[in-house]
Amino acid sequence: RNRTTFTSYQLEELEKVFQKTHYPDVYAREQLAMRTDLTEARVQVWFQNRRAKWRK
């Protein structure tokens, strides 16, 4: 699989949710996936990576 390149809009939306919660539930991830036109799996992985970056 190729690396996903996120648009500025997608990143904005993802970051907005990340500010509210670092662990969005499956419903929140589904909503976000629909809004950003990404798969729920991509959203889930983005949050995993974002949490790792945040911990550093």
Rank of each mutant, 00 (worst) to 15 (best):
N2S: 10
N2P: 05
R3Y: 12
F6N: 04
F6E: 06
S8K: 14
S8Y: 07
Y9S: 14
Q10R: 02
L11C: 07
E12N: 13
E12L: 04
E12C: 05
E12T: 07
E13M: 10
E13L: 08
L14G: 00
L14E: 00
E15D: 03
E15Q: 04
E15G: 01
F18P: 01
F18C: 00
Q19Y: 08
Q19C: 09
K20E: 15
K20S: 09
T21S: 11
T21F: 13
T21D: 11
H22A: 11
Y23K: 05
Y23D: 10
V26A: 15
V26E: 06
V26W: 10
V26S: 13
V26G: 15
Y27F: 13
Y27A: 15
Y27W: 10
Y27V: 13
A28D: 10
A28K: 04
A28E: 13
A28T: 08
R29N: 02
R29C: 10
R29M: 15
E30M: 12
E30H: 15
Q31E: 10
Q31H: 07
L32I: 09
A33Y: 04
A33C: 09
A33M: 08
M34C: 13
R35Q: 05
R35K: 08
T36Y: 07
T36G: 02
T36F: 09
T36N: 04
D37P: 02
L38G: 02
L38A: 05
T39I: 03
T39L: 03
T39P: 05
E40Y: 03
E40A: 09
R42T: 13
R42F: 10
V43S: 00
V43R: 00
V45D: 15
W46K: 03
W46Q: 00
F47L: 05
F47R: 00
F47P: 02
Q48S: 12
Q48F: 06
Q48W: 06
N49Q: 10
N49C: 10
R50W: 01
R50G: 02
R50D: 02
R51V: 05
R51D: 01
R51F: 15
R51A: 01
R51W: 03
W54D: 12
W54P: 10
R55M: 06
R55K: 06
K56G: 14
K56E: 08
K56H: 08
K56D: 11
